[in-house]
Design a protein around this nucleic acid. Structure first.
Length: 266
DNA sequence: ATGACAAAGAGGCTTTGA
């Protein structure tokens, strides 16, 4: 069997898979990503639209939840093999925010990191604890020889380059020094922030809120990230954001964000 | 400082999340 030249790995916070299914299918058909991490399904497990995705050529694993959260991993032409469901470190945490699977030869951790607002407060505390748990577990992924990626909605604005107006967001959980510190501490394990790596200092946004026509005016944030371990970093061939999805009517507030990986050694 | 949008449960609005 001929091997594809590149593997396209994408993450997309759909903000309700029920409300966004038609747009998701349209995007899959147009951009044909090989692996997709989805966040904010906002659907119970039984409401996950597996048959529609299968008709579109994708297998899936998912972790739903009523009303909030929910993550999934899609594989083009294959069903991802689930490795882990839920982030270790707190058995009492029942929120559907973490799913890990092997797909197309790599390990993908799909995350929906807690937003943490309002801060300060218990939700921000939960965010920081969740990030500490993520860092602990990520250590076991960073050295996977075949390649590993942690992708999803991190709800962290890494630097002021990643926000249209840092002052307007200064009180927000996404930009707090503690959130940023935890993010960079994670990177220090050996993870590469793919979008930043590929685009250098250029401005790249992945999210535009629904207020004041921010999408149309390109007043956004970069909070959806694709972190790759060293074996995958050496294969990085490109990265981008499908902003056209965000500019549609009734769009999610996030746009699909992706990387391309060269074929790995066999 | 403002404010959009979708889902859910109980209804034909209100609350919640972020």
């Amino acid at each position: 069997m001929a091997r594809k030249k590149t593997l396209k790995l994408a993450t997309f916070n759909v903000n309700g898979i029920g409300a966004r299914l038609a747009q998701l299918l349209d995007w899959l058909a147009r951009e044909r990503p090989d692996v997709v991490a989805l966040q904010e399904l906002k659907a119970r497990d039984h409401a996950f639209p597996l048959s529609a995705l299968e008709e579109a050529g994708y297998g899936a694993v998912w972790q739903g939840q009523s009303s909030w959260n929910g993550v999934a991993i899609l594989g083009r032409g294959t069903t991802p093999v689930e490795v882990r469901r839920g982030l270790p470190g707190d058995p009492a945490d029942k929120q559907s925010r973490y799913l890990e699977a092997a797909v197309h030869g790599i390990v993908v951790a799909a995350i929906y990191l807690p937003n943490g607002n309002p801060q300060p407060g218990p939700k921000f505390d939960y965010k920081l604890r969740w990030m500490a748990r993520l860092a602990r577990h990520a250590k076991s992924l960073v050295s996977i020889p075949g390649g590993a990626a942690i992708v999803g909605d991190f709800n962290v604005i890494p630097t002021d380059q990643d926000v249209y107006d840092a002052k307007a967001w200064r009180k927000d959980a996404l930009i707090q020094p503690e959130s940023r510190e935890a993010y960079f501490k994670l990177l220090e394990q050996g993870w590469t922030d793919s979008l930043r790596h590929v685009h250098g200092e250029a401005t790249v946004y992945t999210f535009w809120d629904y207020f004041r026509q921010h999408a149309q005016r390109d007043r956004g944030l970069r909070i959806d990230h694709l972190l790759v371990n060293p074996p995958l970093a050496s294969r990085l061939a490109g990265a981008g954001v499908d902003r056209w999805v965000r500019l549609q009517e009734k769009a999610s507030d996030h746009a699909p964000t992706w990387i391309e990986l060269k074929a790995g050694p066999r």
